[in-house]
Amino acid sequence: MSLAKDFETIESLEFIVQFSVLSGFSSLLRAFANDAKVEALRAKLGAQANACQSVVNRINQVLTKSDVELYDESIAAYLFCLWKADLPLAHKASERILETGGLWWSVQLALHIIKEAQAETA
């Protein structure tokens, strides 16, 4: 499956509502870690050159959508994959996410990543 196809899957309502029903940040991280679609994207980030940058670009595109809050779980899933593959890039994407309103899980993960990146550089 191509990266574009992964993006389409992760931005589908079917994918989004699997995670929007969760009631805890740690539940979300566990669910992402066990999800086959998220795992498929993670595998590509480790195997394909420039795949991480493509995910960053995709996050930036989704963040400009007028109904961006609908894609909270999609953005969080992208950021989760990026976090596992490339922490500095995930840190940059996190700072961009914090500039956007209406997001819940994405902001929590972004803040978590920023803290981790800061701890690593300290």
Binding site: G101, V107, Q108, L111
Partner: peptide, 14 residues
């Protein structure tokens, strides 16, 4: 959540 304050101020879902 310590960050829920931040999120409340960044706007909620429609």
């Amino acid at each position: 959540l310590e960050w829920s304050e931040f999120i409340y101020h960044s706007g909620l879902q429609t």
